[in-house]
Amino acid sequence: MSTVSTVTPGSVSELSARELRRAAWSRWGYRLSVVAGWVVFVGVWYLVARLVLTPQQLPQPHVVAVEAWDVLRLREFGGNFQASILRVAAGFLLALLLSVGLGLLIAYSRWWRRLLGRVLQFVVSIPTVSFAVLSLIVLGISPMGPILNTMIVATPYITTNLAQGLTGVDRRLIVMSESFGRTRAQIIVGVLIPSSLLSILGGARLAFAVAWRVALLTEIFASADGIGLQIRRSFESYDIQGMLAWALLFIVIMLLIENLVLRQVERRLSRWRTPATGVAP
């Protein structure tokens, strides 16, 4: 028997493996809760549709699903969807541009921080329906309504997170960059942007969630095309089934974008944060 003990370079990688397992569990828990939420939602819908309301008031889920399939195939879903999503995208882009300016002001000037902080807080506290109604009054039926409203509701979220990201930048990394002769442009690209990127993305995801809901509402009230218009038309012709089908399709697609695409991008970009298993000794 040998008395020589071998040292295994294990402790670090075991720890992170455990952390990874825990992270995986919580991811699965999250997914499970999402599925459970949908099951409950559809279940309640069935119950209410069968026991409380008439089919004219609330058609059953599977009827709406069949109708949605029809909408998808036969009733120019693509064109309407494109009109709506382009407006969300345009409003979102404008919000992003505006937020870069406002975020810089908030991050680097105390005076602006105090002023804008209050304004943004106020904007966030306004119920989204009022934006829809307001744009009908001010702009009438116009494609600008959804775009502007998207911009207005998305801006506070992106701005706040951007400013937070910028103020959270480690000053010492900037000093390090300067001492190694990095230029201002190199520091912006190499330090400022990457270090606030995750925070910005988090804000963007929140903003997107609010933005498409507002855009849809505004379209329902005041638009000459897009999904919102189709919903209004169905409603006006007492076609509850069609109305629900249009709404459901749009909502499902947007939720998918929000939760799969945006979350995936975030996860990809935050890879450097998770300690991987294969730590060298």
């Binding site: 010492r172 990394l173 390090m176 001492s179 190694f180 002769g181 190499g190 330090v191 990457p194 270090s195 450097w272 944060r273």
Partner: peptide, 16 residues
């Protein structure tokens, strides 16, 4: 002169 600086902490960019 060109300067090389070693800091009290590593000061590495964590995302690289």
């Amino acid at each position: 002169a060109r300067v090389g600086y070693v800091f009290q902490e590593p000061r590495l960019l964590p995302w690289r």
